[in-house]
Simulated scan of single mutants.
Amino acid sequence: MADLFAGLPVTSIAASVPWYEQLFGVAPFHPNEVEAVFEADEHRYVYIEQKPSIAGHGFVTLFVDDLDTHLAAVADRGLLPESEETYDNGVRKTLFRDPDGNEIGIGGGPAAA
């Protein structure tokens, strides 16, 4: 088993952490003053790093077991995706953008009938 860390550049850690807490529903740990790490799932982390010169140019996609339940929990925390797409094979992907414009996709299997 390997741990996965996916990073996204942001303008300000202080300004970005609340938005990511809404998205992931967890508080981060801070390995230093310019990074915040969120555990998306066991051994899978998304971290944000304060890098103003490249902020907003990142993208990452996560897949979850139950997309509808996951999206409902995120909505309960105050965030809605900006778009949703369904591919020919029934896989769905939603797209969120953080305050800097980084794209965070959350996908899953077909919608429940």
Rank of each mutant, 00 (worst) to 15 (best):
P9M: 08
I106G: 03
F24I: 06
H43Y: 02
L67H: 00
Y20S: 05
G78A: 15
A2E: 02
V26L: 03
G25N: 15
A55G: 14
S12Q: 04
H30C: 03
V60K: 03
A73V: 05
G7L: 03
L71V: 00
A113S: 13
V26A: 08
D76Q: 12
F96Y: 15
D66F: 00
E82G: 12
A36Y: 09
E84L: 09
P28G: 07
A73I: 10
E42Q: 08
I48W: 09
P28K: 10
R92I: 03
F24Q: 00
F29A: 07
G101R: 10
E33K: 04
E84M: 02
A40H: 12
K51G: 11
D3S: 03
F29L: 13
Y45W: 08
D76G: 06
G78S: 14
T94D: 02
Q50L: 10
F29V: 14
W19G: 15
E42Y: 01
L95H: 14
V34G: 04
A40Y: 02
V46E: 09
V91E: 01
A55C: 10
H57V: 07
E33M: 06
H57G: 09
A15D: 11
L62C: 01
A72Y: 00
Y87H: 15
I104Y: 04
G7T: 15
P52Q: 14
A113R: 08
D100S: 01
F5C: 02
A6N: 10
A40W: 04
V46N: 13
S53M: 11
G109Q: 00
V10Q: 12
A112K: 01
K51P: 09
A72S: 10
F96Q: 11
F38Q: 02
E49V: 10
L79K: 13
R97L: 06
S83H: 07
